[in-house]
């Protein structure tokens, strides 16, 4: 494993993190260490073992299709950094 600065910058961009140049090097080293640690798992023989999607040995938690009260517009917007009378306001999205 050897994380490049470019890979770190790419992951940071995907996570919307703004990193300084010196942070890139430090994080590349950190991530390298983490990935090599996790890489140990590859040493295990897992032939014929189903991938585990969930740690809890349970399946199928359902709800019935019945309407329950929503919290309403006012409460929905109460923590919004910016809102008008019914909507969240966000910076212009360019398409």
């Amino acid at each position: 494993m050897s994380m490049t600065r470019e890979q770190v910058a790419h992951v940071a961009r995907l996570a919307r993190l703004d990193l300084a140049d010196n942070e890139l090097d430090r994080l590349a080293a950190d991530m390298d260490a983490i990935l090599s640690y996790v890489d140990k798992l590859n040493e295990l023989d897992i032939d014929g073992i189903e991938p585990t999607a969930h740690a809890v040995p349970m399946e199928n938690a359902f709800r019935e299709d019945r309407v329950r009260p929503s919290i309403g517009t006012e409460k929905a917007l109460v923590n919004a950094p910016a809102a008008d009378d019914s909507c969240f306001l966000v910076p212009k999205v360019i398409e």
């Binding site: 359902f62 709800r63 309407v67 929503s70 919290i71 517009t73 917007l77």
Partner: peptide, 29 residues
Amino acid sequence: GCSTEFGRTPNSQTCPVCLGLPGALPVLN
């Protein structure tokens, strides 16, 4: 359990799950 009815006041049919508030857990219909 929020209603899917079309054309209501914006954000009136929301709850912690569909607003994506921390800690809210989805349950499958």
